[in-house]
Computed example of a mutant assay.
Amino acid sequence: MKALIFWALSLLMIAAPASAQVIKDDNPYRLLEQVAEKTFARIAEERDRINDDPNYLKTVVREELMPYVDNIYASKKVLGRYFKDTSSEQRQAFYQAFTDYIVATYARAFTQYDESKHDVEFVNPKNVSPDDRAVRVETRVIEQGRPPIRLDFAVRYDSESETWKAYDLIVEGVSLLQSKQSEISSVIRARGIDNTIALLKDKAEQPISLDDEVDVPA
């Protein structure tokens, strides 16, 4: 199960750099496939630099991933019922802290990726009509000698940016967004929103090492 979570977290962060040319495609299936190929190619090309400085993975995540992740929508879902109990300032602070936290989390997840062992296949692509606003993109993680891992992206169309964005990943039928909501809600309940924000910030700032494991604040 831990291996599934590593893959889920790393793949969920498919995106493109805000400062570079953004990949545009009206079909979310093609879009995610193009960006995945670009992201994994960069990791392979910069493997030596990553091995020398694992913290560089945070840069890769920010530059190659974030704009195609609907981090605000995901943050609101994770905040859940505590949304109405927080001030506007607390919400904005939570959105930022949670975004920084998931960047660090996905950077750690990428320490588990080995381009010499892993392949990603996109399956069952479908045509998307102009009226579609939410789809599920199916992928499989292939590693020789092991059963394929099923990963389904929950993707929604963001009309403001006119881009399809991933906000959840269902790993072998388990929603990671729902899992995060449950885990972080328990922290908010025990420690309060301000302490939860501080905890997320602290974890986001911790350095990355190649033997890191993805961890959840508790």
Rank of each mutant, 00 (worst) to 15 (best):
F98A: 06
S75N: 10
E160K: 14
I170D: 04
Y82G: 01
N127L: 13
R133V: 04
K180E: 14
A107P: 11
D152F: 02
K126Q: 12
R91A: 06
V155C: 11
R133W: 02
S186F: 00
D70W: 11
R146G: 04
E183S: 10
T111E: 03
N71L: 11
R136G: 09
S159F: 08
I188C: 02
V69E: 02
E143W: 02
P125A: 08
A107T: 05
E115W: 01
I142R: 08
E183G: 05
D119W: 07
N71S: 12
F153Q: 03
V123Q: 02
I149T: 10
S161M: 05
V155A: 14
V128T: 03
M66K: 12
I149W: 01
N71M: 10
R62Q: 09
D119L: 15
I72H: 08
R191K: 13
K180G: 14
V78D: 13
E138N: 09
L169K: 09
E143A: 14
R81E: 12
F110L: 14
E64Q: 06
R150H: 05
V137D: 01
S186G: 00
D131S: 15
I188R: 00
V128F: 04
F122D: 03
N71A: 08
N124K: 06
A74W: 05
Y68P: 00
F98C: 03
T111F: 08
A104Q: 04
S186P: 00
K165R: 15
M66T: 13
D194R: 03
S129G: 07
K76I: 10
D119V: 09
L151R: 07
Y167D: 04
Q92W: 11
R133P: 00
A97H: 03
Y95T: 08
G173E: 09
